[in-house]
């Protein structure tokens, strides 16, 4: 009797563990939000005065441009790729706006970098899709090209001077009542568009299909090169928009402004549960991943930890979360 009971209880324990695993696998956003709440709770206990509407505003303001860059990584991850050129493209676009706005007006100043980004993205997409160059190498090469050209542009424009336009400063760093950043005006439609695209459009499903099984999708008649070209154009345009927000947020026009955000954007997508091997993940998890990274930064700096500790914890959390994902998805 007792033996049967213990088997039964063991089975119950096992099934609840399996249920947890299933939850983690199918709805990774639930444990991620749990982690986020836990971290905010930790801040609340350790530094009770910090959490106030102003803190929320500052955190969101810093998270939004990073979330757009992380969207680039999420979309490219889904096809088994990666976009290392987002830093160069974003810096270039922020810098171009600041140098063009004085002569050409804001509309032209915004359109020109968007166009350049789209061209760079198209070249990347053709390299990856048609020539089958590894996305890591293709986007690395493209980032060198964009960075170099931006530097040349900087030397040409050195006399005219530059300044981040006031409208962009308001958009990037202004808030409503100190809580809701204006950049939400850009981010909410973008995020809704990306979520809708991935869930409910043919293109979104094709991204998953190409990444999950390239051979099967080819045999099913998918022209994967067209999917990839559109994907990398989209990624570059998103990066350019993030660049506008970064220059508005920091009020700095520099050709290397966004470089330091590239690796965190990759990290956010990984923490958010998108597989770098393709075919699995989504933007909802990535947004939580960005918030986790931003809140972690805020937590550690509020505790007075130096940059070194922050980086070490950053890396450790990425490995731990990625290992947890691999574990639950491998056992399915």
């Amino acid at each position: 009797m007792s033996g049967a009971a213990s088997t039964q209880s063991r089975r119950a324990a096992w099934s609840s563990a399996a249920a947890w695993r299933g939850l983690f696998r199918d709805r990774p956003i639930v444990p991620l939000v749990g982690l986020l709440v836990l971290m905010i709770g930790a801040i609340r206990i350790l530094q009770p005065d910090i959490i106030n509407p102003g803190w929320v505003g500052v955190t969101l303001r810093a998270a939004i441009p990073l979330a757009i860059l992380a969207a680039c990584q999420t979309l490219t991850f889904l096809t088994g790729g990666i976009d290392l050129s987002v830093g160069a493209v974003a810096s270039m676009s922020g810098f171009m706006v600041a140098t063009l706005v004085g002569h050409q007006g804001l509309a032209v100043a915004l359109l020109v970098p968007l166009l350049i980004a789209a061209i760079a993205g198209a070249v990347t997409g053709i390299g990856v899709g048609v020539f089958r160059v590894h996305p890591l190498i293709m986007t690395l090469g493209m980032s060198l090209v964009v960075l170099g050209l931006a530097n040349v542009w900087q030397l040409i424009m050195v006399q005219t001077g530059s300044g981040v336009p006031a409208d962009l400063r308001t958009l990037g760093s202004g808030t409503v009542g100190g809580i809701l950043p204006f950049s939400l005006l850009v981010f909410v439609p973008l995020a809704a568009f990306i979520l809708f695209m991935l869930r409910s459009t043919g293109f979104g499903r094709l991204l998953y299909a190409v990444g999950d099984n390239p051979v099967a999708s080819r045999l099913a008649g998918v022209r994967s090169w067209q999917v990839l070209v559109v994907l990398y154009v989209l990624s570059a345009v998103l990066a350019a928009i993030a660049g506008f927000l970064y220059s508005g947020l920091t009020n700095v026009a520099s050709v290397s402004l966004v470089d330091s955000a590239v690796l965190p954007s990759v990290a956010a997508a990984v923490i958010g549960g998108t597989s770098i091997m393709g075919g699995r993940g989504g933007f909802a998890g990535t947004m939580v991943g960005v918030l986790i990274l931003t809140v972690l930064t805020s937590l550690l700096s509020s505790l007075g930890y130096p940059e070194a500790v922050r980086q070490i914890l950053f890396g450790s959390i990425i490995v731990a979360v990625a290992a947890a994902y691999t574990r639950v998805t491998a056992e399915s």
Binding site: A267, E307, A308, V309, Q311, F314, G315, S316, A322
Partner: peptide, 8 residues
């Protein structure tokens, strides 16, 4: 991830 750790 380890690149963050070693840099730290």
């Amino acid at each position: 991830a380890m690149s963050f750790v070693w840099a730290g």
